[in-house]
């Protein structure tokens, strides 16, 4: 029996009206690895994330996650299978506290339904306490335990990005998709983010990363997939990709 990787993308396509955003893309992500998806603006990277997480249906192609086809599943189902993500444009629940944001991240790991919620006050629900404990653990994992009660909307961008990561981690996912986690961060924050991604890998979580900060990408990735106009133009280790003439051409512009 063939050994499947955690995630296998094959022949993935997405067409918006006349725009071909993703064109016949293939790549694998092995368990426990960090795969970077890079490419110029508009290359289709976010669209790939949206298809993996069930936000957009692919026009064509297959997405295998733990050997199951997931390309037709709605996003909440994909989340339940163990895929978590962050967004290129930070999406925190700004009216809710930092802690509550992370508690939402525990959604797939808890199950109190409608009737129990109606009929029991929160302090009677052991699950509610566990959700909070876990959320606090993940907050301290990203070093934000001190500001747990602040409204998320009031935080600076750097903290909001960290919070998004903590929220995604709280689901204890098998696969974590990070869409430009370092964009808008200063040098110090970028360093902290890089270090955090390293610690995430150490926990055995597979990471798929979209990032424009090449230094960060080259330092932490095991595999780099380069896309341009939705097509894969190169793939390999950071060192291989950096020397690839097509990549140099795409980045310097033809």
């Amino acid at each position: 029996m063939a050994q499947y990787p955690l995630l296998r993308i094959s022949g993935l396509r997405k067409v918006f009206g006349g725009v071909i955003a993703v064109d016949d893309l293939d790549f694998d992500a092995d368990t426990g690895s960090i795969t970077a998806l890079i490419g110029p603006n508009g290359a289709g990277k976010t669209t790939v994330f949206n298809m993996i997480t069930g936000f957009l249906p692919p026009t064509d192609g297959e997405i295998l996650f733990v050997e199951r086809k997931i390309e037709k599943l709605p996003s909440h189902r994909v989340a339940r299978m163990g895929v978590a993500r962050t967004f290129q444009h930070v999406q925190v629940f700004s009216q809710m506290s930092v802690l509550e944001n992370v508690m939402v991240g525990r959604h797939t790991r808890s199950k109190t339904g409608l009737f129990l919620s109606l009929l029991t006050p929160p302090f009677w629900r052991p699950e509610e306490r566990r959700i909070e404990e876990k959320a606090r653990e993940w907050l301290s994992f990203v070093g934000m335990e001190g500001i747990a009660d602040r409204p998320a909307g009031s935080l600076p961008l750097g903290n909001q990005r960290m919070l998004e990561v903590a929220r995604a981690l709280a689901a204890e996912p098998k696969l974590l998709l990070l869409d430009e986690p370092a964009s808008g961060l200063n040098a110090r924050e970028t360093l902290a983010m890089g270090e955090l991604i390293g610690r995430i890998r150490e926990m055995g979580i597979t990471v798929l990363l979209v990032e424009h900060d090449m230094e960060l990408v080259m330092e932490i990735s095991d595999q780099v997939v380069v896309v341009n106009f939705g097509r894969r133009i190169a793939a390999g280790t950071p060192a291989e990709v950096q020397l690839d003439p097509d990549v140099i051409a795409a980045y310097l512009g033809e």
Binding site: S75, F87, F93, A168
Partner: peptide, 14 residues
């Protein structure tokens, strides 16, 4: 309440 803050992020959280 999360849907109210960001429907996308809420969906992504399951």
């Amino acid at each position: 309440r999360a849907i109210h803050g960001s429907e996308d992020a809420a969906c992504a959280a399951g």
